[in-house]
Design a protein around this nucleic acid. Structure first.
Lengths: 357, 357
DNA sequence: AATTAGCACTCATTGGGGGGTAGTGCTAAT
DNA sequence: ATTAGCACTACCCCCCAATGAGTGCTAATT
């Protein structure tokens, strides 16, 4: 499992073993309790024997380094975003997923013939349920997916049903409208032509090539091919901007960190702007592994009180999309990271089984 | 616009003009302010000149009739579910929808070729946005929809892609697995057979007939037809239990009526049980017009703090599904009712344009 | 007979004050 | 280097009293 660091922690500090222990302990306690951690209570819960006073000194240093803040003068300390970052990068022990959870995640429908969208919906629902946070997943990008099969079906004089089957097993249908009526027989020959010419090519390539054909080779094609290319152009036009499924938004409301109405409101707004989240998911597809965006590390302002953890899923050939979890910055990182990672793997496996590659 | 009354109000009471005025005024004030209405403030806001004392007497009577309750002894009065029912049945003036809203609702995508699911998604999103409540819509029931076209496409040795196009313009695709490999040519003749035999028939009929064929006529069919029937059986098997789209759940959180965590939680649970809501939508498809379920009138316990308003949408031939709004019992009934009604009409119109009937 | 004014009463809400508590920082002793 | 001790801080909780919006009832008024 590769965990990318989005933002490198400043290097000009020196945390000895003990400070690290204290920091880790504060973070883990805080993740559990959601309440500021004081020196006294920490002294008790800490394995090592250290007096509250000593811990206070250490805490003071950690505060100076920007890892802890106080909500007010006489309150305990709370980890900052940098603290979580350091924790994730250096302190968090790798988590193993309980067998029970693994089983549940593996129970994603994988009978033969399950549609990709269904698999995604089930997966994101399951992950939301297990993490108790909000989960998102982007559907396979049409542009990168490669053609397995195209089919043209005459529905009426001016309507043609286009079926696109991609290598990843995604079936897309849309209806195109044409000016002149074509016989099904003619459409069959167009189908054959398009399949022969474009099978295994990516949608983007296909579109580009058709575009070129229309621009350059207008004269070279005879009548039938001209029709075919024109229909093909419409058929391969990308009408879907890319989609995203969300599940478990409501889970966040039950989380103790989002009890203030203001933060809930910004979350609501965040999920309304699907395109912004989709962009993050798309970006994180570009690099392998688990991506973690903690609080202010999110470029998307409305998510700056949250942590977003994503991982891409793929089939044999291509990275297809990303799945992610949105939760409070004080989430149980090791648990959630490993779950996102594991889910992405299972999802990749399931989808690969559906693929034609 | 037909507005059905789910539960008839008791008839053994006698509300004179003035009592009705007071009740209506209380309800409308409460809908606006979400705060208990007292006799003094009502006396001021009421058009007619009545002293607080008089109003108190009237209020007391209304309370006896079960139309008003107090949250505590010295608080103002709040309308009961029965009051809303009476209001909806007798007091609410018919509302006209502002031209602006009409325009927005009419802006639902209706370009040629838009898929039904997309139309539904856009519509429910728009309605949620305009009402500021949660909205649901059920997708066209597969069982009632009638076949326009079926197509079988060989994807691999054991996979056949089945495309079903219904009269309502809904395209469903699924992949079926077969034991023996069939040539595309063979599939084409099966396609032709199935289309000829079953076009314009409802899915339910088709399934029944195929079932009969398998049971009774086994011997009569020659080899090809036997295959065709077997493939047809799989193709027409209903794998989708019926679906529902939800939008704007989060709107409810911002509503002043759901500020207590407990009621939010029950709403969350309610929306998790899609099947229960879907059942209500399905039931209300059976009768024309707008259906209103106020508070306890909902059989579904988790919705008993809410009002659900539904209306069915249809194409020329069939009632296809229902669209609904879930909000607090103290919603602006005349506004919401007319919006749901109008939306259902627009939706019907849009979908009819996509249909083949 | 219907309406209203007056009055006693109720009860949620608000704001202030005090004790308790969990925390800090600093200093001096170990 | 660690710890004990101590002064200090600020939240939280509880109590209390004042406030105010509301009611129900009764007697006076129209």
């Amino acid at each position: 499992m590769t965990v990318l660091r989005k933002r490198v922690v400043q290097d000009n500090f020196d945390l000895n073993e003990r400070s690290q222990l204290v920091l880790r302990s504060i973070i883990e306690n805080y993740i559990q309790s959601s309440e500021p951690i004081g020196s006294r209570s920490l002294s008790k819960s800490l394995g090592v024997k250290l007096s509250p006073a000593t811990i206070r000194n250490i805490m003071s240093d950690l505060a100076d380094l920007g890892f802890l803040i106080q909500t007010h003068t006489s309150a305990g300390r709370v980890p900052t975003d940098s603290a979580y970052r350091f924790y994730v990068d250096s302190l968090a022990p790798p988590a193993s997923i309980p067998e029970q959870i693994k089983q549940k995640l593996s129970a994603v429908p994988n009978e033969h013939g399950t549609q990709v969208e269904e698999i995604l919906a089930e997966t994101v629902h399951l992950l939301a349920d297990l993490t108790k946070f909000a989960c998102v997943v982007s559907t396979p990008k049409a542009a990168v997916s490669r053609l397995q099969r195209i089919e043209l079906i005459k529905l009426s004089e001016d309507r043609i049903l286009v079926i696109l089957v991609t290598k990843a097993g995604v079936v897309r249908d849309k209806i195109i409208f044409v000016n002149e009526s074509h016989s099904q027989k003619f459409l069959n020959s167009v189908t054959e032509f398009l399949n022969k010419k474009f099978k295994d090519r990516s949608m983007q390539e296909i579109r580009d090539e058709i575009h070129q054909s229309l621009v350059n080779d207008r004269s070279r094609y005879h009548e039938l091919l001209a029709h075919a290319v024109r229909i093909g152009k419409k058929a391969f036009e990308l009408n879907q901007p890319g989609e995203m499924l969300i599940d478990g938004q409501m889970n966040l409301l039950l989380d103790s960190h989002f009890h203030e109405l203001s933060s809930v409101r910004s979350l609501i707004d965040a999920f309304d702007q699907k395109s912004a989240i989709l962009k993050i998911l798309d970006d994180s597809m570009k690099q392998k592994g688990v991506h973690i965006f903690i609080g202010v590390e999110n470029d998307f302002k409305l998510l700056q009180d949250c942590t977003l953890i994503t991982a891409s899923y793929r089939n044999n050939q291509n990275v297809l999309g990303s799945i992610g979890v949105v939760g409070p910055t004080s989430m149980d990182y090791k648990r959630i990271i490993s779950m996102v990672d594991y889910t992405a793997h299972i999802l990749s496996k399931t989808i690969t089984e559906q693929s034609y590659d």
